[in-house]
């Protein structure tokens, strides 16, 4: 597997060079933004308290296990991503507004998302590994630069600005073709599904709206 050091303000060439399954380590500023930040910035139209994408083009779907000390300093413990598919509703507008090029999270998006607004914006998806390499990722945080909107959103939803130094590992889960690593793996696994299910039959009581296609996804 290829290992790559990547800036959180990457060039178009650096992004175009990424291939599905590459292992990436990040350097530079990365900010956390999830439903709280998206709603506040996009629905409530609050001013985003950072210069984006000049300072960072990397949006982490995360809230860290961290503490703000009484003197205003920070203690960063573990850092783990949250599932990204839930944020598809806000991401197209967020990307257009902030110029985000790296969406970092858990589980990736669909190839439709990638083709519809990742590729046109020159962005790719990086997945955390595991999930739950929280301690390893925590080690990659050199410093917490700021925490925005803590009062409004609480620690878990606030916008954390992290200074990353060889932070990782992450895995490249989409590319400039709009291909999706997880869908590629799903397709390989699907070949075996009929054999595994052999002998079983659908439950006698159906669930309303239930699909019987085991190649479907829940996201």
């Amino acid at each position: 597997m290829r290992e790559i050091r990547l800036s959180t303000t990457p060039t178009a060439e650096a992004i175009a060079d990424l291939r599905l399954g590459d292992v990436v380590y990040l350097d530079g500023l990365m900010y956390t933004a999830r439903e709280g930040v998206y709603m506040r910035a996009l629905e409530d139209r609050a001013n985003i308290p950072m210069e984006l994408p000049a300072q960072s083009a990397a949006n982490f779907h995360c809230s860290p296990a961290a503490r703000i000390n009484p003197d205003g300093s920070f203690d960063m413990g573990a850092v783990t991503a949250t599932a990204s598919f839930r944020f598809a509703k806000w991401l197209p507008e967020w990307m257009a507004k902030t110029g985000a090029k790296l969406i970092v999270g858990k589980g990736g998006m669909t190839s439709k998302d990638y083709k519809d607004y990742f590729v046109p914006n020159g962005a790719v998806y990086l997945s955390t590994v595991g999930y739950g390499t929280g301690a390893l990722l925590g080690r990659g945080v050199e410093n917490v630069e700021a925490v925005h909107w803590n009062e409004e959103l609480g620690l878990a939803q606030a916008m954390w600005v992290l200074k990353c130094k060889k932070m990782g590992p992450f895995i490249v889960a989409s590319d400039m073709n709009g291909d999706c690593l997880f869908e590629r793996e799903n397709a390989k696994i699907a070949e075996n599904v009929a054999r595994v299910y052999e002998g079983t039959k659908p439950a006698v009581l159906k669930r309303y709206g239930e699909s019987d296609d085991r190649t479907d996804e829940v996201i």
């Binding site: 413990g77 573990a78 783990t80 949250t82 739950g132 929280g134 301690a135 925590g138």
Partner: peptide, 10 residues
């Protein structure tokens, strides 16, 4: 080693 949580999601 670091005495930090193994996962960021508690």
């Amino acid at each position: 080693e670091d005495r930090r949580a193994m996962c960021g999601d508690t």
